[in-house]
Design a protein around this nucleic acid. Structure first.
Lengths: 108, 108
DNA sequence: GTATCATACCTCGTATAGCGAGGTATAGAG
DNA sequence: CTCTATACCTCGCTATACGAGGTATGATAC
């Protein structure tokens, strides 16, 4: 069963791009940051997060840098200019969809 | 390409259930109502709407009634008690996800 | 010493479902 | 007689969220 039900499409990408627009982070750190920043409202499993990161890297939205810290390898992700443009697109997209849903939920 | 990009998962179901909680409607009417109520923000193609309606009927959220009006057959959909429970679930789900996204977009 | 937990990465298979394109048919306007 | 709006439908493609499972290290607890 889906932990976050079925209202998530595109959301992981948006969250990752937004968090990485502030500072570079590694995968595990992103998972924790998403949980904390959303006040536990959203929690991305690793089966969502890592494939999403790889896909975004392949599409040129992110670039990576490997660092070994106290015996553990971390893959740091940073946003590219293309990633920042993508963030703008997705944010507008989100505002549009969320606004539309609110009209329906509120009014009728 | 996706007209509504990829931030739509579950949204069509939520919108349909919400609109049908007020009054019964037929498919084409729902398509128009969604466009208008969302101020053109969301427009569901028929390839989304009709399969979604069938799936919701199969899951017991909607019941149907056929009427022929001036030579055209209309399939009217109405929400069931199960559909109203589903609407409550999806609404809460939506509030949770949307709230979480807002935290990330606003703060960091 | 060893069990357990947190850290840190990964892949695979499945299920869902959004989407465009395409199909059928009637009514009414021009 | 053509074009538009109405009204329904299916098919195949693609994207992607998800759980489960796998590997490995370091630190803490027993």
């Amino acid at each position: 069963m889906a932990q976050n039900s079925s209202l998530m499409s595109g959301v992981p990408e948006l969250l990752v791009l937004r968090l990485l627009s502030a500072r570079e982070m590694y995968g595990y750190q992103l998972a924790v940051a998403i949980r904390e920043t959303t006040r536990e409202a959203i929690s991305l499993g690793e089966g969502v997060l890592y494939p999403a990161l790889h896909a975004m890297e392949n599409r040129g939205f992110l670039k990576t840098r490997r660092r070994t810290v106290s015996g553990r390898t971390r893959v740091y992700y940073a946003s590219t200019p293309k990633g920042r443009r993508r963030l703008n697109e997705l944010s507008q997209e989100w505002r549009r969809i969320a606004g539309g849903v609110e009209w329906v939920l509120a009014g009728i």
